[in-house]
Computed example of a mutant assay.
Amino acid sequence: MNQLTEPLFLTPVFQPKIWGGRKLATEFGYHIPDGKIGELWAISAHPHGPNTIKNGPLAGITLAEAWQDHQDYFGHQTGKVFPLLTKILDANDSLSVQVHPDDAYAAAHEQPGELGKTECWYVISADPDSYLIYGHHAKTREELADMIEKGEWNELLRKVPVKAGDFFYVPSGTIHALNKGIMVLETQQSSDTTYRLYDYDRTDDQGHKRELHIKQSIDVTTVPHHDPKLDVTTETVADATITSYVKPPISPYFAVNRIELHGSLSQEANAPYTLVSVLDGKGQFIADGEAYVIEKGTHFLIPNQIKSWTFTGEMEIITSTPGKEE
């Protein structure tokens, strides 16, 4: 077995979007391309934006290649694809109203290997009076289709106020949209399949409206909508406050935690690997006698062979671990 006793730091991938802005540069200091940049793919092995590993014996290959060829670093998982994707989204304008399929629908209707998409959002920042589209008011699928056909968006769509520090779990089948002025860290299944239900009749730079997916949206939407019942817990451990937002079985695909650190926190591995995103502050990640400086905007993966580690400093961190194997 090859030993990998250092974390995997990754080169970010930036995605231009019609609704994007420049906050990934102004708020996080990333060197982003010109134009409207909507998404940072921070930890990704998806073919539409795989990260390249920056350090260690795997430097220069993508996370997708590492998953295929170096499974000892991931605990010998049997899934065909790396199952998770971590993003930061800058909604300078409102995203389309959309819905994602589950694994079965994606397998039947999308490219081979494409997963369904259950996701969640931790709200980094939100302008005053910001809101999300989260769910709908239709009682039956027939009523859903009728309200869509008539364009009764104000009656159909459910608006939810949002502020920094909020958390939303978005299972596949949930109609949703980030609206303008919101920045989130998103943890999701590794999928890039989105069915647009409504896009405010926007046009791109060439005057074209973006494609809608009405049939697929009606097919996959959960009717009626029910907010998921989350078991959010908060505990103080050493110099940290740890909030557990979701975990299996409520969230079958991932567990997500927030660490508010003021000092030092030592942890033991409880999953095959762990994804880490630093949202604020600065400190160190210490493992196997080595210390690595981490700060706001740092994202990395803790491989299977690191069984314990310590965070030190003043930081806000989001961690995620995989749930069931894909």
Rank of each mutant, 00 (worst) to 15 (best):
S125H: 07
S277N: 15
E27C: 13
H48N: 09
S96Q: 01
E260Y: 08
Q188T: 06
D90M: 01
W121A: 08
L4V: 06
Y134Q: 11
T174Y: 07
D231C: 06
Q267E: 15
H213C: 07
I182R: 09
V256P: 09
G116Y: 08
V170I: 14
H299P: 08
R141F: 05
E186N: 01
Y253W: 14
Y200N: 05
I32D: 02
N2Q: 13
G297A: 10
A25L: 14
F300M: 00
E295V: 14
Y134H: 12
Q68D: 10
V237C: 07
D219A: 11
T243V: 10
L178Q: 09
R141I: 08
D199F: 02
P128S: 01
N179H: 11
A287W: 09
R196M: 08
T86I: 12
Q267F: 05
K296S: 13
H136N: 13
V162K: 11
Y273W: 03
Q77Y: 01
F167L: 15
E326M: 01
P128A: 02
I148E: 10
P303Q: 01
H46D: 04
Y131V: 06
Y200L: 03
A104W: 06
I286K: 13
H48G: 08
P57V: 07
W153E: 11
Y292A: 08
F311E: 06
L58C: 02
P248H: 05
Y122T: 04
K296H: 12
I218K: 04
E155R: 01
T174F: 04
F74P: 07
D72R: 09
Y30H: 10
L157Q: 11
V223R: 03
P228H: 02
L84D: 03
D204W: 00
K150R: 15
D90I: 01
P249S: 14
L156S: 03
L197S: 10
D69E: 13
P12Y: 10
W41N: 08
L261D: 08
I318A: 04
T86M: 11
Q284E: 12
A64E: 15
G56Y: 05
N2H: 14
Y245Q: 09
I37R: 04
H208Q: 13
G283E: 10
Y245F: 13
E325A: 07
T140A: 11
R141Q: 13
G35Y: 05
